[in-house]
């Protein structure tokens, strides 16, 4: 019989890994979202095609397939990556593809008159983006980014299948060691919810803060 404290301790260890994976993948996904979002809006045809390919390939195949592909195939192709990196790479690439679409459509959703006013004030393309378009597009992005972050958090549980000892992995290990399935999986679900809820609240707060004076 394993004590409750022992169960809780090893779940907390897993939680730390989950949060790490989450943090790194959010950063990677966000970076890729903006890079490919901008590329898909560029006038340059090759950039458009490249971002289209990236988006459709990573949205069109499944996250788990991508993780397994990276995990099993890369070593055979001669590339050895630590499990953590595989997890972060898989999650980041996958959610970056979804994020790129959000960045693209949000920028397009800024009313055309805003662009025209910034041209009439003779702003440079950089200044237009920086002062006028992006701040407004960002507010449009936020609700979807909030959802995507929750999706990504849920997606981190898949790294347990490529042997990264995250929250879910620890729970599965405990299950075979203790057979206390009801307790373990109930705590597991609650822990995920405890991580997810503040994320949702934080995004809501940010949305409110950024929409000051508008509407």
């Amino acid at each position: 019989m394993v004590s409750n404290i022992a169960i809780f301790n090893s779940l907390l260890k897993g939680l730390a890994v989950t949060l790490q994976v989450l943090g790194y993948s959010v950063i990677l996904a966000l970076g890729l979202s903006f890079i490919f979002g901008f590329l898909s809006l560029s006038k340059w045809k090759i950039a458009k095609i490249a971002s289209h390919l990236y988006i459709e390939i990573f949205r069109g195949t499944s996250l788990l397939v991508q993780l397994f592909w990276l995990y099993f195939s890369l070593p055979i192709l001669g590339i050895q990556l630590p499990a953590m990196l595989v997890g972060v790479l898989g999650l980041g690439l996958n959610y970056g593809a979804y994020g790129a679409v959000v960045v693209k459509t949000s920028i397009q959703a800024v009313p055309k008159g805003q662009f025209e006013a910034s041209v009439a004030l003779n702003m440079s393309p950089f200044r237009r983006m920086r002062s006028v378009i992006l701040p407004q597009a960002f507010v449009i992005m936020l609700p979807t980014f909030s959802n995507l972050t929750i999706e990504l958090l849920k997606g981190t549980s898949l790294v347990s299948l490529v042997t990264l000892s995250d929250l879910t992995f620890q729970a599965m290990a405990l299950r075979s060691a203790t057979m206390e399935t009801v307790k373990i999986f109930t705590i597991l679900l609650i822990l995920y919810f405890i991580v997810a809820y503040p994320i949702t609240l934080a995004f809501r707060w940010l949305e409110k803060k950024l929409s000051v004076g508008r509407g």
Partner: peptide, 8 residues
């Protein structure tokens, strides 16, 4: 909605 499908 806030917890992973895999865990469910």
């Amino acid at each position: 909605k806030s917890t992973p499908l895999l865990v469910q």
